[in-house]
């Protein structure tokens, strides 16, 4: 976003091409593409908070609500996901605000905020497991299948589902852009640095925090809903809890949480890496793939806190800085 129109085109054209390519590729690549699009949305949603030092380790909670609520409504009451998903998003937002309001009010920030959210993710997982009569507990559940149906949002044709996932992903990017260009970015940056000073400058810290929390949790629930509709199988461990919550954090950081496309790059990178390692190792060296994956993430977080996009920005910016011997700035 720092570059001019030319660099922006240079970035967006290949991106648009990459986004369109899966329509012409095989089922296997479409399967990859759907997953990347859905997780890109989730990681983007997380980074909307993460970039402002609102480090949530509990976004699995919203993913879980998004996944289970529409399916439960469909299976038990025949409610279409087109209604169930907005309801799930509203419920996730409500849950986020119920936790976010007292946390912000009591100025729970930094590590303590992370711990509160960590607990939240786990609570949702435990609730799903405990309600095993309706959710199937740890064994998971499947939505009642009706074959191909837009009404039930059951699209065995991967290209169709990919189109849906792309729209959702774009919605995430639109939200990012809205924040990036709006006054809310200034407010949230100021809050991230110094809450008291932000308050004294007239920023309603509580209100602005809750706003971004609502957007982030709602979009995460949307991602969870699509993920469940796509897989047609829900399990507590895959949809919520600490594991998923941390996966969200790691991937968003690996991609770069300060850039609109960072979380998307993070999704593509982690999913392709997992898949590549799986193909490479197959059934030999069981656990090697996961070990390499884990080690890479540790390296990323320690040496590249701004992620892949941050590194790319640094490399791209380097040759352009020296050949600009501009006139010295006039003194104040």
């Amino acid at each position: 976003m720092r570059g001019g129109r030319d660099t922006r085109l240079l970035l967006y054209l290949p991106l648009a091409a990459a986004a369109a390519a899966p329509f012409f590729l095989s089922d296997y690549f479409q399967h990859m593409a759907v997953q990347i699009a859905i997780w890109s949305l989730v990681y983007t949603a997380w980074a909307l908070m993460g970039r402002f030092r609102l480090t949530s380790l509990g976004h699995g909670a919203f993913l879980g609500v998004g996944a289970y609520v529409p399916t439960l409504l469909w299976n038990n009451y025949g409610v279409t996901p087109w209604l169930g998903i907005p309801l799930a998003m509203a419920l996730a937002i409500a849950l986020a605000l119920i936790v976010g309001y007292p946390s912000s009010r009591q100025k729970v920030v930094g590590h303590y905020f992370a711990l509160v959210t960590l607990a939240l993710g786990q609570v949702v997982l435990l609730v799903i497991v405990a309600m095993r009569d309706v959710t199937g507990g740890s064994l998971g559940m499947t939505p009642h299948t009706v074959g191909h149906s837009w009404y039930a949002l059951q699209l065995p044709n991967k290209a169709e589902f990919y189109a849906v996932a792309l729209v959702a992903w774009l919605a995430g990017l639109v939200a990012w852009r809205y924040v990036e260009r709006g006054m809310i970015r200034l407010a949230l940056e100021s809050i991230a640095e110094d809450e008291d000073a932000a308050e004294s400058a007239g920023v309603d810290v509580l209100r602005e925090k809750l706003k971004i929390t609502a957007v982030s949790s709602g979009l995460t629930a949307l991602g969870g809903a699509l993920y469940a509709q796509y897989l047609m199988y829900l399990s507590p461990d895959a949809m919520s809890g600490v594991g998923i919550s941390l996966q969200i954090v790691f991937a968003a950081i690996a991609g770069g949480m300060y850039n609109m496309l960072g979380p998307t790059i993070g999704a593509a990178f982690t999913i392709l890496l997992t898949e590549g390692l799986r193909v490479l190792f197959g059934t030999h060296f069981v656990g090697a793939a996961n070990t390499i994956y884990g080690a890479l993430l540790v390296i990323f977080i320690i040496f590249m806190p701004r992620g892949i996009v941050g590194l790319a920005e640094r490399i791209l910016a380097r040759p352009r800085v020296p050949p600009a011997p501009a006139a010295p700035e006039p003194a104040e």
């Binding site: 200034l186 407010a187 110094d194 004294s200 400058a201 007239g202």
Partner: peptide, 30 residues
């Protein structure tokens, strides 16, 4: 602050991740 009572801090507390003018625009807006 919005009622018309503004303050400065003894030790300056700028928002370093915002540009100088953004610091002031923020206060003017909110």
């Amino acid at each position: 602050c919005r009622m018309g009572l503004a303050r400065t801090f003894q030790i300056p507390r700028p928002f370093r991740r915002l540009a100088l003018r953004e610091n002031v625009t923020l206060a003017a807006f909110y």
